[in-house]
Amino acid sequence: MTGIYAENSEGIFKKSVLEAASYASRISNGGVLAVCIGQPKDGEADKLAQYGVSKLIVVDGIPAFDSQAYTAEITKIFSANQVQHIVLANTYEGKTLAPRISVAMNASLATNVVDFPDTSNGFRIRRGVFSGKGFAIVELNKTNKVIAITPNSTELKQNPVTISIEHSQAAAHQINTEITATSKAAGKIPLTEAEVVVSAGRGMKGPENWKMVEELAELLGAATACSKPVADMDWRPHNEHVGQTGITIKPNLYIAIGISGAIQHLAGVSSSKVIVVINKDPEAPFFKAADYGIVGDAFDVLPQLIEAARASKN
């Protein structure tokens, strides 16, 4: 049996969890067991079943995220069910838990995984290295394996099965961490999960001009991002900064406006499936990494794009 840790965000399983289910179902030879902490909303378990999860165990009794308590409960269930391969999404929460679970289960650990394993010669997986500038083929030597997959890199394929649901009461844990405040940007699409990202750089001249960027993003259902200097100058919040020293993203579509395409910027975005570059300088290095390009002034091009996006929506 293959296991997944099904991270739930206020009772909802996001697409990255379904990708983990789909991945696990493809590599499993005997069903997929999902563990989630806290009660999912009605209908959410059925979403997992669509992607091959045959059994869900809901852990009750842990009030808030604590990586030690979570790890103890997750590994208790996987060990009891003889699970050898565990798949998680490489989200912030997944990245925090995957290493701990690997230690607790004496497993090989692979994070940032971008493809299904090749088992023709050992168990080999492909993972991103050098911040988007390369990939490594890594053989996982231990019998137990923990695999954290990069969202949006593996195929999401339905494999409907029937699911059974059980509950497990958590043991009493000594809790070492206490969450005292949480702030979430309400109503905005988190950058790490967005399928479309509209990003802009110093070519936008000043923060007052981001209205256009935001408008295009909203029409395309996109998250907004920016280059490093833009965040450094406080034109935009730091959590929008993508690149080598910012967030690495892998959306289906990345639209870069007034960004030169420095190597450190590309490191964080070059794995995007389709890249569009809008820049008034035909020599901007970003065009070499682009699928579509418009050589032109952003202040002239953006209104046209907004109009076209709006027209095609109606």
Binding site: S102, A107, S108, L109, A110, R124, V129, G132, K133, G134, F135, A136, I137, V138, E139, L140, N141, K142, S270, S271, V277, F287, K288, A289, A290, D291, Y292, G293, I294, V295, G296, D297, D300, V301
Partner: peptide, 23 residues
């Protein structure tokens, strides 16, 4: 004990030439 072995590295496939659209 070595938990994993790095077998090989690859660089990303080169991009096709950009398709330009008239501004």
């Amino acid at each position: 004990e070595f938990a994993s072995t790095y077998r090989q590295f690859e660089t990303p496939a080169p991009k096709q030439a950009v398709k330009l659209i008239d501004a």
